[in-house]
Simulated scan of single mutants.
Amino acid sequence: MNDVSLSRRKSKYTPRTVPVSEDGSKLTTSAMIASLDAEGRETVAAPFGHALVDLAKTRDDIVGLTADLLKYTDLHVFAKAYPDRFYQMGMAEQVMISAAAGLAREGFTPFATTYAVFASRRAYDFICMAIAEENLPVKIVCALPGLTTGYGPSHQATDDIAIMRAMPNLTVLDPCDATEIDQATRAIADHPGPVYMRLLRGNVADVLGEYGYKFKLGKAQMIRDGRDVLFVSSGFMTMRVLDAAKRLQADGVDCAVLHVPTIKPLDMETIAAEAAKGGRLVVTAENHSITGGLGEAVAAVLMRAGVHVPFRQIALPDAFLDAGALPTLHDQYGISVDAVTASVKAWL
Rank of each mutant, 00 (worst) to 15 (best):
N2I: 14
D3Q: 15
S5F: 10
S5L: 14
S7L: 15
S11C: 13
T14I: 14
T17G: 13
E22W: 06
E22Y: 06
L27E: 08
L27F: 12
T28S: 12
T29E: 15
S30I: 07
I33W: 04
S35W: 02
D37M: 12
V44A: 05
A45P: 02
G49A: 02
G49R: 00
H50N: 10
H50F: 07
A51V: 02
L55W: 04
A56Y: 00
K57N: 03
T58S: 14
G64K: 03
L65V: 06
L70H: 10
L75D: 00
R85G: 03
M89L: 14
G90V: 08
M91Q: 09
M91V: 15
A92F: 11
V95F: 08
V95M: 15
I97Y: 05
A101T: 11
L103Y: 05
E106G: 11
T109D: 01
A119Q: 10
R122H: 13
A123C: 12
A123G: 08
A123I: 08
F126Q: 15
M129A: 09
A130G: 00
A130Q: 09
A132T: 08
N135D: 13
P137R: 06
V141E: 00
A143Q: 03
T149W: 02
Q156N: 02
A157T: 05
A157I: 04
D160S: 11
D160R: 04
D160N: 07
R165K: 15
R165C: 02
A166V: 10
M167G: 05
N169H: 15
E180T: 04
E180I: 03
I181G: 00
I181L: 14
D182Y: 02
A187Q: 01
D190S: 12
D190R: 07
P194I: 03
V195A: 11
N203T: 00
D206M: 02
L208Y: 06
Y211Q: 07
M222E: 08
R224E: 12
G226A: 08
V229N: 02
L230E: 06
F231A: 03
R240H: 12
D243P: 05
R247P: 00
L248H: 06
A250F: 05
A250T: 09
G252Y: 00
A256E: 01
H259Q: 04
P261W: 02
T262R: 04
P265S: 10
I271S: 02
H288A: 13
T291H: 12
L294I: 07
L294S: 09
A297K: 01
A297F: 08
V298Q: 10
V301N: 11
G306C: 14
V307Q: 05
H308K: 15
R312G: 12
I314P: 04
I314R: 05
D318I: 07
D318Q: 15
L321Y: 05
A323D: 07
G324S: 14
G324H: 07
L326D: 00
P327L: 09
T328S: 13
H330T: 10
S336M: 14
V337T: 14
T341G: 08
A342I: 03
A342G: 10
W347S: 14
